[in-house]
Design a protein around this nucleic acid. Structure first.
Length: 151
DNA sequence: GCCAACGTTGGC
DNA sequence: GCCAACGTTGGC
């Protein structure tokens, strides 16, 4: 069982959108993020992070409900995520499916994460980090759930 | 809207 | 294989 963090701009896709229906995490075009998705297991937990919002922060939890499979938007010339290097036979990009699990009573804001002991090593907080999918350690997971309180 | 940080691209 | 240029991300 591993833990992850999924980043999304709420104006584009929010936790409420995910609550309405599970979704595929298509459109990831970063090799590191893709490689993380390739290692995800059914039932893995994830935080849902709202970026480019005020304040940015973690708003709830999700669950991996399907392991990695080819991202079809890479093959669609009309998609903004189209990648002509990718083919049906040799897909480059992968995605997983995630489902809503819980919404925090209050957002755990980025500045609060930064101020919390035990989260100093968190990948999310690293300077210049731009990954849309990243791992979270079990310890970090526990600390943040505590910050969030009952959902 | 600004800009620092980063990944990717492409010329050489 | 180097590295400058570029596009994108995301906090502020």
């Amino acid at each position: 069982m591993a833990y992850w963090l999924f980043k999304s701009e709420p104006g584009v896709f929010s936790l409420s959108d995910l609550k309405a229906a599970p979704t595929d995490w298509s459109g990831v075009r970063n090799y590191q993020a893709r490689n993380f998705m390739l290692t995800m297991q059914l039932g893995d937990g994830g935080f849902f992070y709202h970026s480019n919002s005020n304040p940015p922060g973690i708003v709830g939890t999700v669950e991996v409900v399907r392991t990695a499979y080819p991202d079809p938007t890479a093959l669609d010339p009309k998609s903004p995520y189209y990648d002509p290097r990718s083919t049906l036979e040799k897909p480059i990009w992968q995605m997983v499916d995630i489902a809503f699990r819980s919404a925090f009573a209050e957002i755990v804001a980025l500045d609060r994460l930064r101020a919390t002991a035990g989260l100093e090593q968190m990948l999310l907080l690293r300077r210049g980090n731009r990954l849309s999918v990243m791992p979270v350690s079990a310890a970090e997971w526990r600390i943040i759930l505590n910050l969030a309180g009952p959902s």
